[in-house]
Design a protein around this nucleic acid. Structure first.
Length: 960
RNA sequence: AGUCGCGUAGCUCAGUUGGUUAGAGCACCACCUUGACAUGGUGGGGGUCGCUAGUUCGAAUCUAGUCGCGACUACCA
């Protein structure tokens, strides 16, 4: 291993990944306990964003951690076909060549989609590799694979046979741009400013209202739908209008005669109290229509344009002659929003526009197409969900599935307990085609294949059958992900071994879309939960807290953070292929502001460590470039610590340590120093903390504990403390060997501890270090850190004495450094030092650490003062009760020392007052537990002692 | 409107069952190129823990209210 002065991630990452993959380290390795995570399948034709990066960092950390603990570990990758999104992309590509999907035909179009999948599919898998994710590529799955498609058919057929899937003409959320129904989850409600139009509807047959008007006024936010009105509702209790129930309206523009009905939906307090009813274009009206047996009139095409002729249905959704299909021709073919303007104008012209008010309203948009959703009367397939939801709720209630953090369980319950039937058909071509066939009479047959359908229903070849044109919602197949990918409906070995899986790692935004549906489907078909735990993480946001999205132009490709990207390329990347090209200028400006110098290369480990350190329980993960930089530096720190260790044991690439030298290092006599015992003890603590944090899904704590240990203990103190031993001629061989062995062994264990979080750098270093540390036996073959044993906390190596002694040492050194800084004595200048008022313990510590102290505080001389010994005039630091004195020989600034002492005294006094106040309060001394009172008393004594010593010192100097 | 979450240093975030002198990283200031690392070292400044009440001997932590932000659900004639 050639060791550059700084860590160069790009030099090692890809080759290590290749090695791991080729050697098959990612595949399950056997063992009694299994551990399995299924990757949330990303869109096969998409590309990974920061959210995926985060997600992968967490999953890989858990997988590597469990693998190193010897579990039979499977992390299974895969992608989904993302019906709407993928079809849209391919349609747009074709449109660019002037080709329309419909001209191409279904078969040809699907060929194009498969081609595109083949072309872009490698993108995601490449990204996953670059993130270092140790997924088992041999088991990669795709939702449209043959096996999974079989599972989808099987599930559909079984649900249908149990009457849990049905087909019906109902009002659905229709996307007029994408020409498909979508589920209510795919609807995004946005607040908009709009208007409320008040229309006069003339009463028929000469009827008048109580106050003598020959019309009533209805209010609407969607005037164009009036063409489909089949009634007006008033509240049956409403004194103003109840007499009108049963009377009729002469619908303007259309001349349709429609009834006034009484329905509690009409709120006397709201609007005018009269509500126009358009059952075919409004979810509430649909219900009102059903209750009052009003016909349904569809006036819109699937494009959202006004039809030339309406479609009239009775209340059961059957075609009917209740009304004429005639519509005013002037609106035919007009877009719904243009028609709105035209119709309002017409009402105005006719003197029927009563009033227009500004109105805030929530408008439904399709989350993919981005256009306003239209409630539309269509035939669709539904899953009857209530029966499936019940056991799924219980599984969480009884703890079979646990959400982490727990608070997400409430979110889950609130949705599950008020769940609506799931519209699963989509008017697309790309997806799992619905396994239903129709004969010429419109009878429907469901089965695994046409042949099966014919056989089961005794349908001869003379009977014409055609398959349903629609496909299933992508989430329908995703819902089967955990078990369909393991071979279900066969009862495979994999299924037996790895199902239920252990953890699902996902963002809260798809709890309803995916998590809940997986739980329902998996319980139904396997009788098992899909996973035991759901780790829910926040959404990755940009530095301004905005959700990252292509349309906002603030997305980041994790690879650009790993490899770096220059500003121009980043701008180009963000502004290309946009749905709304007019945003480009804004995005460019924003990008130039946030990344004036582009993005530097940071390496995978730094990126992963950043994600993990941000993985707390919050709902947002604001990605912070400066933290990323900090963790890149952390990698460099680890790298350079290794350089120091290598140098100190005399190992280089050119002249590696000989086998004899290694044997000597590991087996020769050692005389452990206090520092050696201390760092070994601290390592145990670090291991304990990291393991505890990982078991608890607190990746931020795990990262913090590791960072702290490596930087603030191993590097900042232990490495420094090893230098005097290694560099002194007075050290014995056993002492030097002890330091070297400790340097090596602690670093080696730290690498294993860190590996799940930062796989590359740890592997790179471990390869060289493990043979030297003679710890290859901790790995089954010594070939890779990936399969080495995860460190275990060893209580017997905890050394409390060493820990307190080193704390003392650090206190003395810090005290002296403080004096140096405050008095302007440069760190290079040797000083004398005296110890006053020390206890036996202090003396023992001093004797044991003279070398350390002299080296680290740059002391030329140390003197121990016994009681009664005369101390020179000096600057003082307190370590417990002991005073550390740096004599103020000659030119030292007395004023500086006075101000230093006064400041210290003031600070001390504040604390002293606070504690004294507490102890003087009888309420506290009466009620607080004894140990708390003892603690406070001890503090008080300490502060008082310090006050006395500081004032004494102050007086002495002032007396000069 | 309802439910939930959040509000701690300039920024990004920790803070375990109420008892620490409220922490970390980054940024900032001063000093230092000493034989792992300037992607470094040493020292330092910076917080009345959104606000107000309350419970308690004691509240960043518990309760109620309030303000602000966000998410979700519902309604919107």
């Amino acid at each position: 291993m050639a060791m550059d002065k700084t860590y160069q991630p790009h030099a090692i990452e890809q080759s290590w990944y290749k090695t791991w993959e080729e050697k098959g380290y990612f595949a399950p390795q056997g063992g009694d306990d299994s551990y399995c995570i299924m990757i949330p399948p990303p869109n096969v034709t998409g590309s990974l964003h920061m959210g995926h990066g985060f997600n992968n960092a967490v999953m890989d950390c858990m997988i590597r951690y469990n693998r190193m603990q010897g579990k039979n570990t499977l992390w299974q990758p895969g992608t989904d076909h993302a019906g709407i999104a993928t079809q849209m992309v391919v349609e747009r590509q074709l449109a660019a060549q002037g080709i329309d999907r419909k001209d191409l035909g279904r078969e040809k179009f699907l060929e194009k989609v498969w081609e595109w999948k083949a072309e872009s599919g490698g993108n995601i898998t490449n990204q996953i590799r670059r993130l270092g994710s140790s997924v088992d590529w041999s088991r990669e799955r795709f939702t449209m694979d043959e096996g999974l498609s079989k599972a989808v058919e099987e599930v559909f057929v079984r649900l249908y046979k149990e009457d849990l899937i049905y087909r019906g003409k109902r009002l659905v959320n229709w996307d007029p741009k994408l020409h498909t129904a979508i589920s209510d989850l795919e609807v995004e409600n946005k607040d908009k400013k709009g208007h409320m139009w008040h229309f006069r509807y003339p009463l028929a047959d000469g009827v008048t209202t109580q106050d003598g008007r020959n019309y009533i006024v209805v209010a609407t936010t969607r005037p164009e739908t009036m063409l489909g009105d089949t009634g007006v509702a008033v509240n049956p209790e409403d004194p103003r209008y109840k007499d009108l129930i049963g009377k009729f309206i002469e619908l303007p523009l259309v001349g349709r005669r429609i009834p006034i009905v009484g329905d509690e939906h009409a709120d006397m307090e709201k609007g005018t109290g009269c509500v126009k009813i358009t059952p075919a274009h409004d979810f509430n009206d649909y219900e009102v229509g059903k209750r009052n047996k009003l016909p349904m009139i569809n006036i819109l095409t699937f494009n959202g344009e006004i039809r030339a002729a309406a479609e009239v249905f009775n209340t059961n959704g059957e075609a009917s002659n209740d009304y004429s299909t005639e519509l005013p021709q002037e609106y035919a073919g007009m877009d719904r929003f243009d028609a709105r303007k035209a119709i309002v104008a017409k009402f105005d012209e006719l003197g029927l526009l009563d009033e227009v008010k500004d109105h805030d309203l929530t408008v439904p948009y399709g989350d993919r197409g981005g256009v306003v959703i239209e409630p539309m009367l269509t035939d669709q397939w539904y899953v009857r969900i209530e029966e499936l939801a019940k056991p799924a709720i219980e599984a969480v209630e009884n703890g079979s599935i646990e959400f982490v953090p727990k608070s997400y369980e409430n979110m889950y319950y609130s949705w599950m307990r008020d769940i609506q039937d799931w519209c699963i058909s989509r008017q697309l071509w790309w997806g799992h085609r619905i396994p239903a066939w129709y004969d010429d009479n419109g009878n429907v047959f469901v089965g695994r294949s046409e042949a099966e359908v014919r056989q089961d229903n005794n349908l001869g070849d003379d009977i014409n059958l055609r398959q349903d044109n629609d496909v299933l919602d992508t989430w329908f197949s995703s819902a089967l992900w955990t078990f369909s990918t393991l071979g279900w409906p066969e009862n495979t070995e994999e299924l037996k071994t790895f199902h239920p899986t252990d953890v699902l790692v996902t963002g809260f935004d798809i709890i309803f879309f995916w998590v809940a549906r997986m739980i329902m489907m998996t319980l139904k078909f396997t009788g098992e939960v899909p996973f035991k735990k759901v780790y829910v993480h926040g959404l990755v946001r940009d530095q301004e807290g905005q959700k990252m999205s292509k349309s906002k132009g603030n997305v980041l490709d994790p690879l650009d953070i790993i490899d770096g990207i220059d500003l121009e390329s980043l701008v180009a990347k963000r502004t290309s292929g946009m749905m709304q090209p007019q945003m480009a200028a804004k995005i460019e400006k924003q990008t130039r502001k946030h990344f004036p110098d582009g993005i530097a290369a940071h390496g995978t480990d730094a990126l992963r460590f950043t994600f993990l350190s941000l993985a707390s329980t919050g709902r947002d993960v604001k990605f912070d470039m400066s933290r990323l930089e900090g963790y890149r530096n952390f990698c460099n720190k680890l790298w350079n610590a290794t350089r120091f260790v290598m140098e100190s044991i005399g190992h280089t690439d050119e002249a590696p340590l000989s086998a004899d030298a290694i044997a000597d290092l590991n087996n020769g006599d050692v005389d452990l120093s206090l520092a050696d015992r201390w760092i070994i003890s601290r390592l145990q603590q670090a291991e304990k903390e990291v393991i505890h944090a990982l078991d608890d899904f607190r990746f931020d704590h795990a990262a913090q504990a590791l960072y702290d240990f490596v930087w603030n203990e191993y590097c900042a103190w232990y490495l420094e403390l090893s230098k005097p031993v290694l560099w002194s001629d007075e050290s014995t061989d056993a002492q030097k060997r002890a330091a070297r062995r400790t340097l090596v062994k602690v670093l080696e264990a730290t690498l294993r501890l860190a590996h799940p979080m930062m796989p590359y750098i740890t592997e790179e270093i471990w390869q060289t270090l493990a043979p030297i540390a003679d710890t290859t036996q901790l790995s089954q073959n010594g070939e890779t850190i990936m399969l080495a044993q995860y460190p275990q906390y060893d209580e017997s190596k905890v050394d409390a004495q060493a820990e307190t002694d080193i704390e003392w040492l650090k206190g003395v050194i810090t005290g002296i450094r403080n004096i140096r800084a405050d008095l302007g004595i440069g760190p290079g200048k040797p000083v004398k030092c005296l110890f006053k008022n020390g206890s036996d313990d202090d003396q023992r510590r001093l004797q044991a650490n003279t070398n350390f102290l002299k080296a680290m505080a740059k002391l030329e001389d140390i003197t121990w003062l016994n009681a009664g010994d005369k101390a020179p005039l000096a600057s003082t630091a307190l370590v417990g009760k002991m005073e550390v004195l740096i004599p103020m020989a000659g030119n030292i600034d007395a004023a500086a020392e006075i101000s230093r002492l006064e400041k210290a005294l003031e600070k001390n006094q504040k604390e002293l007052d606070r504690v004294a106040g507490k102890l003087n309060n009888p309420k506290f001394t009466d009620k607080a537990p004894a140990d708390v009172i003892e603690k406070e008393k001890a503090k008080l004594a300490e502060f008082e002692d310090a006050a006395a010593k500081l004032s004494e010192q102050l007086e002495a100097i002032k007396a000069l």
